[in-house]
């Protein structure tokens, strides 16, 4: 993470020097700090709400019932994860992503990452389950790409939905690739003594 971030910052500043866009850059840098704050504020509300609801679901035992349903699937994908709380957060996150629920999906994903971190005992090296969850979530099939449909409609498309099925197909392929690659690389990582 350290080097990725450093790379982005220094590359950006370096290029800006060459391009003579330093004034725009400094403007953009200041703006992005404000953006980060407003993004978190926006997210905080949604996060609070879902966190509250999930707490209800957990304490009433709904989560326990739900995770039982997904056990066979999650056991294969995340063999090391036993915690029901973690599994339910991951399942919810997948569901929200599938439905294209935007911010709610992000909230569940972050919750799941937090719990995965706890299951990983806060170690500085990402666990297999974290990587698997991240890439799966990243390339999750989205059944209803609302924003894209809206953009197509606005642009005057005759048939905005024509992309839904091909898009789902492509996404299915990328998701399968993501899962397979993740399995492959996590095995290699372990043999390499990670």
């Amino acid at each position: 993470m350290n080097y990725i971030w450093l790379g982005m910052m220094l590359l950006g500043i370096g290029f800006s020097c060459c391009n003579g866009t330093l004034d725009q850059l400094s403007q953009a840098m200041m703006n992005s700090c404000g953006d980060a704050i407003s993004f978190v504020l926006e997210m905080a509300g949604v996060m609070g709400m879902w966190s509250g609801l999930m707490n209800v679901a957990q304490k009433t035992g709904l989560i326990h019932a739900m995770t039982g349903l997904f056990r066979p699937l999650t056991r294969r994908l995340f063999p090391q994860i036993r915690s029901e709380e973690t599994i339910s957060a991951m399942v919810m996150s997948f569901a929200a992503n599938l439905m294209g629920a935007g911010n709610s999906a992000t909230v569940f994903s972050l919750k799941a990452m937090e719990l995965l971190d706890r299951d990983n005992d806060g170690r500085p090296v990402a666990s297999d389950a974290m990587c698997m969850f991240l890439v799966m979530n990243m390339y999750m099939v989205q059944l209803i790409p609302m924003t894209v449909l809206k953009l197509r409609q606005d642009a005057g498309s005759v048939y905005p939905e024509s992309i839904v099925i091909p898009a789902a197909l492509v996404e299915l392929v990328t998701m399968a690739a993501a899962i397979l690659l993740c399995r492959l690389l996590e095995r290699r990582g372990r043999e390499g003594g990670m």
Binding site: M1, I4, M113, E114, D117, N120, G122, A126, C131, N137
Partner: peptide, 15 residues
């Protein structure tokens, strides 16, 4: 960046 922001992970491995 966002997902790992809530964890204590420094090495993101094959992600």
């Amino acid at each position: 960046g966002m997902y790992f922001s809530v964890t204590s992970v420094k090495k993101i491995r094959h992600c």
